[in-house]
Design a protein around this nucleic acid. Sequence first.
DNA 1: GCCATTTGCACAATCGATTGCGCATGTTTG
DNA 2: CAAACATGCGCAATCGATTGTGCAAATGGC
Lengths: 335, 335
Amino acid sequence: MEKPSRRTTIYDIAELAKASPSAVSSVLNGTWKKRRISAKLAERVMKLAEKQGYAVNAQASLLRREKSNVIGMIVPKYDNRYFGQIAERFEEMARDRGLFPVVTCTQRDPDLEFEAAKELVSWQADCVISTGATDPDRISAFCAAAGVQALNLDLPGKAAPSVVSDNFAGARTLTALILDRCNAEFGDVQPLRFVGGRLSDHNTAQRLKGFLQEHQARGIEVPETHILATGYSATKSATALADFRPQGPTGLFVNSTIALEGVVKWLGNLGAAGAQVRYGCFDWDPFGRFLPGNVGMVEQDVDEMMTRVLALVGETGQADAVIHVPCRLHVFGAA
Amino acid sequence: MEKPSRRTTIYDIAELAKASPSAVSSVLNGTWKKRRISAKLAERVMKLAEKQGYAVNAQASLLRREKSNVIGMIVPKYDNRYFGQIAERFEEMARDRGLFPVVTCTQRDPDLEFEAAKELVSWQADCVISTGATDPDRISAFCAAAGVQALNLDLPGKAAPSVVSDNFAGARTLTALILDRCNAEFGDVQPLRFVGGRLSDHNTAQRLKGFLQEHQARGIEVPETHILATGYSATKSATALADFRPQGPTGLFVNSTIALEGVVKWLGNLGAAGAQVRYGCFDWDPFGRFLPGNVGMVEQDVDEMMTRVLALVGETGQADAVIHVPCRLHVFGAA
DNA sequence: GCCATTTGCACAATCGATTGCGCATGTTTG
DNA sequence: CAAACATGCGCAATCGATTGTGCAAATGGC
């Protein structure tokens, strides 16, 4: 409540307590018993620290220490259930492990990603986790040069161990669900359409692979024109579908909630014909179950992914190791 | 690519470049022209720094500087459109202003909130923004004692300037929309029900005030039993409504997307009677427009709030000043 | 009452980057 | 050719906390 001038330091408190800075330091960081500081002095110091609004200067403290216990994460976005949950669980679980989580959001911008990683290294992070990074290997290379551990999450890299969802298996299961449902409700076995995402994106490619494999296993041929991986935006997927006015039963594999927005919009414009459309989405949203025609959604197992990736912190694993985490399938409106 | 042992410092580079640490420092922080370092040496140093994976030690750097340019924010959650967007825009806009944003998520836990604020002060944040904090004044008091600026966002406090949505006006407008729609579609003027949130929560109280005022202005009496502010969870709002099986036209004011989930679930169980239900939600979600019966949603103006709060950084304003930011109303399925 | 411990604390070096100051060499001017 | 600058860079103090070491004073044992 006193000096709005400069921040209180251990020197200020030492003066007030008539003690040395080293004694004050050890009281405030809990090592005072080991340093044989009397309980009397300790209490006096702690009272003063509280009254003065003392907070340790992390800069000075970390500068002197060897391990920082800072663990950094870069995520592309927060405004999305999946990454939001990742950031949130990361902070929570890192704290539980006695680490200081620092998360930073890089808007899918490769340069910003790199800058952010560099910044995290500047903050003496012991480990940097790149989530959904456009160019994870560039970050890994920098971290390697700086002597900092790097890990990848959600998108795999070649230069650091990765933890990713099992997109292939998840997509195959979802494809099977949609096909089964179309079959059960309409007695139909037409090939589905794949909507949203970019083929150059690793996860989309994996999902498409699962999508195609399930069709193949059933002896259903998928025409090229059914692959509408036109990018990540509701508008793009709505546009991709715009010309398509289904005659009869139709099934869609929707590659993200953002694409799902476009699909639902398209469906709304379809009128009565929409009743013959069934779809599933590779991604999860709490409102998904209320959307008509939605037969199921795949939820990535954020907790498990986070457990796995945090288990790698401090370990020296194979640089190109990839851990696949199974997804959870939510089935809606089952008969 | 060399030493996985210790991190590269300016001393390492100075040795390699056959220069002094001070020269290296000024080259790497961009002040070398002012210090009349030759371009030749500068280039040599920068090349070496890159090769060695050098990243400035922020601890050492900030320790010596006077202003940190670090700006901290605590948010309750990320896994929600509103707070996710807040965190994301905060980082973006803070960076644009040359600041270093540090965001931390505190799970609506008052103690964790306080710890996090303390941590931010430890990191020498020049300013701490408490978003939706349970006890913002406690944080403000600590910051004041530590000589750090405090600001409140989303929920107002008494001890630091606040930027909040105009919940009252937003709620009144939304209430008007729902009443109008019920009237237009069913010729009905029954009082609405208020679902979700907690009355002890400032924002809920404000919204309820707007809700009641709009009813009063129309001469509609709202019975006590229509206020179902039973907390923040989909289950709770579904439970609160469980016994209610509307006979005839019904309107609901839904106080958050999380409560909306409960409402939609309840609506699903209602069957055909659900066709006579209209509702609006104070909160925004991209899938909201696709939910049957939803006449509109109120979106808080995150960009404007962030602009306003960032404008306060570094200013010394009235401690209890409150800035109200108007909300945006999204109207769905207008005739 | 004297030596041996134990207790309680202070000293000072250190972490890595920043920055005011100053000292040599060039270079220009008159 | 000397004085006056300009150029290019190194020295050393400093930020605040940590920690190995050391030294009095208090306590205990005989």
